[in-house]
């Protein structure tokens, strides 16, 4: 995280953006070198602000981690230590192997799998549907093209919360309660993503489409050989956003899952805390929280390289 912010400062103070564009793979140390001789006061100030920001964002997470390595007794005795405790292995193995009796006998692994399936399903499903509908709207001339576009556009005004009752009814009638399909499908249509792809597709020059036609590429070929590779940075960016959107869903999974087996990790966390007639196992809650944070972080970190690539490469 610190390294990423360093890089940002460096590029902000750099005088030759062209050079930077040409060397996307320059390691952070290269940027540090270029900062020598520049106004030090400004850099100190920028760093101070950035560090403050990082502390504000990261400290609660760190504290959660610290709490996850102490025993329940330590956590409940007021001043919580600022350094990790000795119970790391005990707590984590308990959470992972079935200490989760408190959430209906479902291990954290099952919950993570459920949530991963849901988040991936939503992210991939949304991308597939929106990229295809944007493709149709931008590159094909068919009757009521603009009508379809506006219908998609209008659904922006209908988030899940607004249509929750009819959607729930439909899911019940289809027998999709407590299924992955029930978790994923209602959240899968996305006007936002469609609009995003539409805007991107509109920037693709008509000549490119025509060149592909002359080169013998039909609609599918054009889509897979040209459009998809050109959209990959957009897809990566959307994937990150949508994966996290799916991962943090609360209201819909709460409604559509009854069985503990189908819970997502966010629901399970809530259930762990709200158990009324027993003590909340705070150390396990903290462990579960940390485990719940890891997959989104992995996705962001893994995809960050694509972001940088997307920013550096100006294709088209």
């Amino acid at each position: 995280m610190a390294r990423a912010s360093d890089r940002k400062v460096a590029s902000g103070f750099r005088k030759d953006p062209v050079l930077q564009q040409k060397s996307p793979k320059t390691p952070a140390s290269g940027h540090d070198k270029l900062m020598i001789g520049q106004s030090s006061a400004g850099i100190w100030l920028a760093h101070a602000i950035l560090i403050l920001g990082v502390v504000i964002v990261a400290f609660p997470i760190y504290y959660t981690f610290v709490a996850s390595t102490h025993s329940l007794q330590t956590i409940l005795r007021p001043p919580l230590p600022l350094l990790p405790g000795p119970e790391f292995w005990t707590n984590y193995s308990q959470a992972l192997t079935g200490g989760g009796t408190r959430i209906g006998g479902v291990g954290v692994v099952t919950l993570l799998v459920n949530t991963t399936v849901m988040a991936l399903g939503i992210a991939i499903g949304k991308i597939v549907i929106s990229i295809l509908s944007a493709y149709a709207i931008v590159f094909f001339r068919f009757p009521f093209r603009m009508t379809f576009f506006w219908v998609i556009f209008i659904t922006l005004m209908l988030p899940v919360e607004v249509r929750i009752l009819p959607t729930y009814k439909v899911m019940v009638d289809l027998g999709l309660i407590d299924t992955y399909a029930g978790l994923i499908v209602p959240l899968i249509a996305s006007a936002t993503a469609t609009l995003l792809f539409r805007q991107f597709f509109m920037t693709i020059p008509g000549e490119l489409v025509e060149a592909a036609r002359v080169d013998g590429a039909g609609p599918w070929r054009f889509f897979f050989d040209i459009l998809l590779p050109l959209s990959r940075t957009n897809i990566a960016a959307l994937f990150v956003i949508l994966f996290i959107y799916g991962w943090t869903q609360y209201l819909w999974p709460l409604l559509v899952t009854n069985s503990n087996d189908m819970n997502t990790i966010v629901i399970a966390l809530r259930k762990m805390i709200s158990f009324a007639d027993a003590d909340t196992q705070w150390h396990l809650v903290m462990v579960t929280s940390i485990l719940a944070i890891i997959p989104p972080i992995v996705v962001v970190v893994a995809m960050q390289r694509w972001f940088v690539k997307g920013l550096v490469e100006s294709e088209k």
């Binding site: 020059p205 000549e207 490119l208 025509e210 060149a211 002359v214 080169d215 040209i226 294709e315």
Partner: peptide, 20 residues
């Protein structure tokens, strides 16, 4: 007959090379 089957090749004003 579509452009593919006319056996023609075209050079465009902005080259229209596939950027990727």
């Amino acid at each position: 007959i579509g452009p593919t089957d006319r056996d023609i090749a075209m050079v465009f004003q902005n080259y229209a090379l596939y950027p990727h």
